[in-house]
Design a protein around this nucleic acid. Structure first.
Lengths: 232, 232
DNA sequence: ACAAAAGTGTTTGCGCTACACCCATGC
DNA sequence: GCATGGGTGTAGCGCAAACACTTTTGT
């Protein structure tokens, strides 16, 4: 351990950082993205209690002592949609002191991607309304700092799209390359070249040809599925 | 707002997510990187109280009610090094239930970059030792999950290096391009081509020629400094 | 004057982009 | 059989990597 300065204990004043715990609320807010009708959507809720009762906001909930943040996010999502085993990705922590109008609440945002048709929505507890909103039709006056959270999560999603493949299940289990390309185009908000897109996807080597073709569509497009033996 | 399913309130059972707060500790752990003698270093501490008293660990501290996470990170860093106005970047949240052996502690990791020579270390409070460790000489048995946190922060740093310029102050205010290149090489762990590196840096347009040359070095290298009028 | 480090352009190769036709299936 | 969408290859271009010599200063 060369080249290292070590200072032994001396009697200086106490560290201003203390090691006591303090009372706080930790929540997770989840940006659940869906893909319907060639549009990227996000799931928002309206609550009957709490702050911002007349505002749309992200589904979110308080973390409890016996769960991790991912557990918490999963719990919230299950409670809202019934869906389980969904891939979550941590996005960011929000800790502005006044982000909650009456108490101190720190929130960790996650994002998840589901197919709305697979997950019927159930209103539970203090949730008055649930709705899928088009990404370009999100109300301006969301509760808390959720506009910012959505913005950050969307940027995160777009960035991840660049190199990795979309995780989660925005598409059916078996899908055509055209469907996958449409998803990319709708998320990124631009048009892609069919041949170049296919090259890129095949290079990633994450799709498996199911041997089936999708019926009802001219041309007889091949159905693919994600390879499970591939990581990332 | 087309194509949106809205569900009105119905009397289903309560959401399992409750909105009550629960008792918890939130801390920040800071991966403070330094650059000395052509080696990337990280600042570790040993504590006289608390868990893992005989283990090295990242500087970290509990968040208080009147501060944001960044405030907290800054506070901890100031308390340890006296340095202020340092750029922090949030890395990740760690919420494993058993990551603290006796109580529930959630930590948010940050990273920062300083020049050790600018910031003499002061032992305060329950800190017994402080030391700069070479990145490849980090003790195996750090306290808590700090090995993981360091690993993640280092990856984060390397990724940021790819496109952005190194923020923070790992180098003197005025530095030569060779020094900057050495920093990149030492952080990334590989060798770079001098001419290509210079092209890349100049393209970024973030350096200002001070007009001075560094004395005592053959060749008379030009001293540069970061442009303050550039964002990102 | 000699050694050591700084500074500077050009060529090459690879990957990304642009682009058009044939094939399979639905109707 | 005709219209619609699926599937395929190649040429050009821009960016990044490879590469060597001259200039400056210290000793």
């Amino acid at each position: 351990m060369s080249n290292k300065k070590v200072f032994e204990q001396s009697n200086l004043q106490n560290l201003t950082v203390n090691t006591d715990s303090f009372e706080c609320s930790i929540t997770t807010d989840i940006a659940v993205f869906g893909y319907v009708d060639h549009r990227l959507k996000i799931l928002l809720t309206k609550r009957s209690v709490g702050e911002f009762t007349d505002h749309w906001m992200l589904p979110g909930g308080v973390m409890e002592g016996n769960e991790t943040l991912k557990d918490c996010a999963s719990k919230v999502l299950v409670a809202l949609t019934g869906v389980e085993n969904i891939h979550f990705e941590q996005v960011k922590v929000y800790s502005a002191i006044d982000r909650h109008p009456i108490k101190r609440v720190i929130t960790v945002s996650f994002y998840a991607m589901i197919r709305p048709e697979n997950h019927p929505l159930f209103l539970k507890g203090n949730v008055e309304q649930i709705a899928w909103f088009d990404m370009d039709e999100i109300p301006k006056n969301l509760g808390f700092d959720h506009s910012q959270i959505i913005h950050d999560a969307y940027m995160f999603l777009k960035n991840n799209l660049k190199d990795r493949l979309v995780m989660g299940e925005l598409l059916p289990k078996k899908f055509t390359l055209t469907e996958l390309q449409g998803l990319y185009e709708d998320i990124l908000g631009l048009q892609l070249d069919k041949r170049n897109f296919r090259k890129r996807i095949f290079q990633m080597d994450i799709l498996k040809n199911t041997g089936e073709v999708k019926a009802g569509i001219k041309g007889g497009p091949i159905l693919y599925e994600y390879r499970v033996d591939k990581k990332a």
